[in-house]
């Protein structure tokens, strides 16, 4: 069992009703509406817009399935984003198992344009799994390292290291593309 998350008044529904003497889960609809957009953004960044729809639906269904077992004082946002993050990892694994179309390889030949909105995430999606998840959780939904650690089932130090390594890798790839840009 993982230790319970520290109570985060900024992230929990209970902050809206601080007079509760016992914590109860809010109606699922309330939790969904509070966190829906962030779950969507995390998935668009993690798996791309085309595959986000399926992952999002899987996330919501898994969340609804597990919801009644959640403790009333849980950090619902971090819990839902953890589910989304794991669905994204599953999706990447499934994609890797599918045979890659050979020959053209338009995706790898395409040098992402840093000026285009969201293009950076195509490169994040090419990072190793843990770095990819950590960078998305850190930058898309602003989770702190304790919550990223919870989502990735690692220590906060390891979560911080994954974000750092991901950023380093993105940085290393950048100069090559700038050169490629100038040659165009």
């Amino acid at each position: 069992m993982k230790p319970p998350l520290p109570w985060r008044p900024d992230l929990t529904f209970s902050a809206a009703a601080p007079f509760y003497t016992h914590m109860t889960l809010p109606p699922f609809q309330v939790a969904l509406e509070s966190h829906r957009d962030d779950i969507w953004r995390l998935l668009v960044a993690s798996v791309g817009r085309d595959r986000a729809d399926d992952c999002f639906q899987e996330t919501i269904i898994a969340a609804l399935r597990g919801y009644p077992d959640l403790a009333g004082d849980s950090n619902i946002r971090a819990w839902m984003l953890t589910i989304a993050s794991r669905k994204a990892i599953d999706e990447h694994r499934a994609t890797q198992r599918r045979p890659e179309p050979v020959g053209e390889g338009p995706e790898s030949a395409f040098a992402p344009d840093l000026d285009g909105p969201g293009q950076i995430w195509e490169r994040v999606r090419d990072l190793p799994g843990k770095q990819r998840s950590a960078v998305a959780l850190r930058f898309v939904v602003d989770l702190d390292y304790a919550d990223i650690a919870f989502a990735l089932d690692c220590s906060p130090e390891a979560a911080r290291r994954s974000v750092h390594e991901g950023l380093t890798k993105l940085r290393q790839d950048l100069p090559r593309e700038l050169i490629a840009d100038e040659r165009r």
Partner: peptide, 20 residues
């Protein structure tokens, strides 16, 4: 700057209804 740029959530509502 790119990583911090907000990703649009325009598809979330429809996907949410489909999921429910």
């Amino acid at each position: 700057t790119e990583l911090n740029r907000e990703i649009p959530a325009e598809g979330a509502e429809a996907a949410s209804a489909a999921a429910l």
